[in-house]
Design a binder for these strands. Structure first.
Lengths: 252, 252
DNA sequence: GCAACAGCCTGACGTCGCGTCAGGGTCAAG
DNA sequence: CTTGACCCTGACGCGACGTCAGGCTGTTGC
């Protein structure tokens, strides 16, 4: 079985020009040429192109891809293993970025501001061994924390006031439920948590029960968020956290 | 609070040159200059840089990032929502690529070859609405299937023979267990499944119980994989599949 | 009080991975 | 035997910076 440039390009989701380029630089060469000079790719070339595209997708420059693939030590299985590992690292990194965006959304809703270090954290070079040392340094330095200030929200004034009023309302009712002695995992508290979740979804972003549970954990684990709730009523951070997580379990 | 280029660069994990570039093209301009002409970035600029880096990470060209951020209709919350959505799409795509690599590894181990369409599937333009129509077309055309051929493995000959012998051994013992009437979820069968999983991990890639369970499902859902087992013994595809999934549950 | 050195500035050219013509040959269908 | 889809090789362009070069600034140590 063999393919022309156009066929292979369609198959692989790249342009003909890209294949010309890869031929020119010797990265993926067609194993044959027809008498008219047409490129003719076979199954083996296809294999190679697939590998190239995967490494490219993972962010490798083409010359590095070439040295990787031309390494006689590395058999196909080794490449698959490496690609597997790199993809899982990317999965982790993306998950971290999703979490960071969610944290930012939540902070914005509450009018809390995150420290600059924290906000760029997820963009770092992401060399795992560096991470431990850097995190140490970052969290040890409490100046960064002191710097954190009120956020000037940039919504339309009226929108913001409406949204804030809605939020305040739920918070007040949480505080009332706590004062009335309703357990955090009671139906009443869980209903409030669900209302809270839907409010976030409506006003900010699509907040699944799982995501909401993550936020719930943060309310007690992150001191700025817990301080926010504790200022409303003592014990409220833990109360809301428990209610939110219980509701998440109930909803799924 | 304000930052110099160098400080901001270190904070955000980019080079000074990048910030110069963003200033030149008007994407992120320092809100002030010192009397000596030094760039001075404030918290607001930092905000903007964060947004730019996130969109950049997601693959947007800088001019599009500029139009996105300068759209007066889009408030910060809208950006966060969009970024959240895009990140989750990326998460899905990465998951699909991990699954594809795992399928390829497994196919290689069994000496099955995947069709070219299948192998490039994950690289497509990834426009979700196109996807349904294209998949329809792809899977409807059974010529593609007919084209699928035996794979010429490119491991060292001896390595391959050893690995293949190991695999054959486990397969034979699975077949024997089936013939002996041991239930697929018996301890004996699950022990074989666990041995199989460790064999994959040792010879091919780090195969977690969850990953292995996914492969197990594929043994019955993908006809080429099930045909492979059925050729060894009737009922073996389902048997191995069940054992593997039961073991995955047991291990976690 | 000044040297040294890290850090800032503005050009300006280089690079990587292609996109995009231009100008021309090839080939299956009608 | 023409039409239209596909192929070829230059060659230039571009986006997003990297990398000097040549020069100013500002703090620290003696």
């Amino acid at each position: 079985m063999s393919w022309t440039v156009g066929e292979l390009a369609r198959l692989a989701g790249v342009t003909v020009r890209t294949l010309h380029h890869y031929d020119r630089i010797g990265l993926v060469r067609p194993s044959e040429r027809t008498s008219a000079g047409y490129r003719s790719y076979d199954a083996h070339d296809l294999d190679r192109l697939q590998q190239v595209l995967l490494y490219r997708e993972l962010g490798f420059p083409l010359d590095e891809v070439a040295t990787l693939l031309d390494d006689p030590e590395a058999d196909p299985a080794a490449h698959l293993r490496r690609q597997h590992r790199l993809l899982r690292e990317r999965l982790e990194r993306t998950r971290a970025m999703v979490a960071a965006v969610e944290k930012e959304m939540e902070a914005r809703q509450m009018g809390i501001s995150l420290s600059p270090e924290e906000r760029f954290e997820v963009f770092g070079d992401w060399l795992p061994e560096e991470y431990a040392a850097e995190a140490e340094e970052r969290w040890g330095d409490s100046d960064a924390w002191a710097q954190s200030q009120r956020r000037t929200a940039a919504m339309t004034k009226e929108d913001w006031l409406r949204v804030k009023a809605e939020g305040d309302d739920v918070e007040r009712r949480f505080a009332a439920a706590l004062a009335a002695g309703a357990p955090a995992d009671s139906n009443a508290a869980q209903d409030l948590a669900e209302e809270y979740r839907q409010q976030i979804s409506r006003n900010f972003y699509d907040c699944s029960p799982e995501v909401h549970a993550g936020l719930g954990r943060m309310y007690v684990e992150d001191e700025r968020f817990s301080a926010y709730y504790e200022r409303i009523a003592p014990g409220l951070a833990q109360y809301v956290s428990t209610a939110v997580q219980a509701n998440a379990t109930r909803q799924s």
